[in-house]
């Protein structure tokens, strides 16, 4: 098998420092060590819409965002064992664009600097929300690298709101080591790897349809004007 070309690879410790983040360029590979937390719609709804207080971390009672500035859009394949401990099998990100509307308030509230998920967010979010706050977006790979990422989770540090939100939506804090690979999508200048690739691919798209006859029936979705007839 051909081995994939080697790419610039960074091994970063969490909380990630501003100087580390400044080095990341779109297309670079990142591995993480430290504590990451998960947050998806259940958490944003609870904290940002229902105004419930953020949790504090277990024994020490410290602010968990002092420990982690890495937000992972994820829900693990986890089980609660009979002794009350957790078994983490696979770990995979979920599509981030759905959380875009909460990111601005969330970053301000938590001082998060790295957002990890699936598929990136719109480039405008990088320009207007992440980059001005010194934050970047890393994408998981594949996206099904659940086993590799599961290996990177060494233990569960804490879990919040498990009873109310369920396994998939609860807020997990994972101790991680050699956690990755992730690909840098956005940098602190607000560039987006996905946007660059989409633009390159878009150049060829209309040629693919050349010579195909027009559809017998139009459909809403091809037009935004709902006063149009589809015939």
């Amino acid at each position: 098998m051909t081995t994939a070309p080697t790419r610039k690879t960074h091994h970063l410790t969490i909380p990630v420092k501003a100087s580390d983040i400044a080095m990341l360029k779109p297309g670079d590979i990142v591995y993480l060590e430290g504590v990451v937390y998960t947050a998806r719609e259940g958490v944003y709804d609870r904290v940002l819409e229902k105004q419930q207080p953020l949790p504090v971390s277990g024994q020490s009672g410290s602010d968990l965002f002092d420990i982690s500035n890495v937000n992972f859009h994820c829900s693990p394949a986890a089980a609660i064992l009979d002794d009350g401990s957790y078994k983490i099998g696979g770990v995979t990100a979920t599509a981030s664009f759905r959380f875009s509307k909460w990111m601005e308030r969330w970053l301000d509230l938590t001082n998060t600097k790295i957002v990890i998920g699936k598929g990136g967010m719109p480039k405008e979010d990088y320009t207007n929300i992440l980059a001005p706050r010194g934050a970047v977006y890393l994408t998981t790979v594949g996206y099904g690298t659940g086993a590799l990422l599961g290996r990177g989770v060494t233990s569960v540090k804490d879990v919040f709101w498990l009873d109310d939100l369920g396994i998939a939506q609860a807020m997990w804090m994972f101790n991680v080591k050699a956690f990755g690979p992730f690909i840098v999508d956005s940098d602190i200048a607000g560039n987006s790897l996905f946007a660059e690739h989409n633009a390159a691919i878009a150049e060829n798209i209309s040629a693919l349809y050349d010579g195909l006859k027009p559809p017998a029936l139009s459909r809403y979705g091809e037009t935004d004007n709902r006063k149009d007839e589809v015939m």
Partner: peptide
Amino acid sequence: ATEDRRPMCAD
């Protein structure tokens, strides 16, 4: 996944 007997994807 096969070595660790863990799901290949968490979804």
